[in-house]
Computed example of a mutant assay.
Amino acid sequence: MRYLKLAGLGLLAAATLSAQADESAPGQGCYGYLTEMVRSSDFPYRDFTTPDKLKLLIDRDDGQQLSLQLFYETSGSGIIGWVHYDVVQQALWNVTIDPEEPQALKFDHRFAKAYAACLEAR
């Protein structure tokens, strides 16, 4: 019985740690870190919406590169633009205007580190 209680406590501790690891967007897995990364960036989405309303749609994810559509909820077209995220280089690029000449974006790298840690934990 004692071992069952210890095992239960271990499971509870593991669940608590994983919840803390994804507190940026509870219940959304690693996606929450991507969202916060883009929200923290200098992408000009603030011309259209506020950070809390910005959402991402993962268009392509090959494990090394992600193509993300930025949008917000509206009655019309809420598409703001596109970014690419290089997982290995931890680099974020604005590809909205010209995908052949992407613009490097500045962002809070804590979210890139948290995203990488989240992927490793899976």
Rank of each mutant, 00 (worst) to 15 (best):
Q69E: 10
E36I: 02
A91R: 13
P99F: 11
Y3M: 13
A25W: 04
A7E: 12
Q28L: 11
G81K: 05
N94L: 06
D42Q: 07
A91C: 09
P44E: 08
A121H: 11
T50A: 12
Q28T: 09
T49S: 08
L105K: 08
L68Q: 00
R110L: 03
Q20N: 15
D108W: 03
S67M: 08
Y31V: 01
Y72H: 13
I80H: 00
L68Y: 00
A116F: 05
Q69R: 10
V38D: 00
T35G: 05
A121V: 07
Q65D: 14
S41T: 05
W93S: 10
L4Q: 13
Y115R: 06
D86G: 00
G10Y: 08
S40E: 04
A14R: 02
K5N: 14
A91G: 07
E36R: 09
S77V: 14
G8L: 14
R60F: 14
T50Y: 09
T35Q: 13
W82A: 09
A117L: 12
A15Q: 10
P99E: 12
F43K: 03
F48E: 14
I79P: 08
G32M: 01
C30V: 00
E120C: 06
P51K: 06
D42A: 05
M37W: 03
K106T: 15
Q69P: 03
P102W: 01
D22L: 13
A112T: 00
Q64C: 06
D47S: 15
G63I: 11
I97V: 15
K113S: 15
C30A: 06
N94F: 01
I80D: 01
I80G: 02
T16A: 15
D108V: 01
S41C: 07
R122E: 14
L11W: 12
Q90L: 07
K53G: 08
K55V: 08
R122V: 10
K106C: 11
A25Q: 07
Q89R: 11
Y85S: 06
Q103M: 10
D62R: 10
I58A: 09
V95H: 04
F71I: 07
G32Y: 01
A25I: 04
T96N: 05
Y33E: 13
P26V: 06
T16H: 11
L34Q: 03
S24K: 06
V95N: 07
H109Y: 04
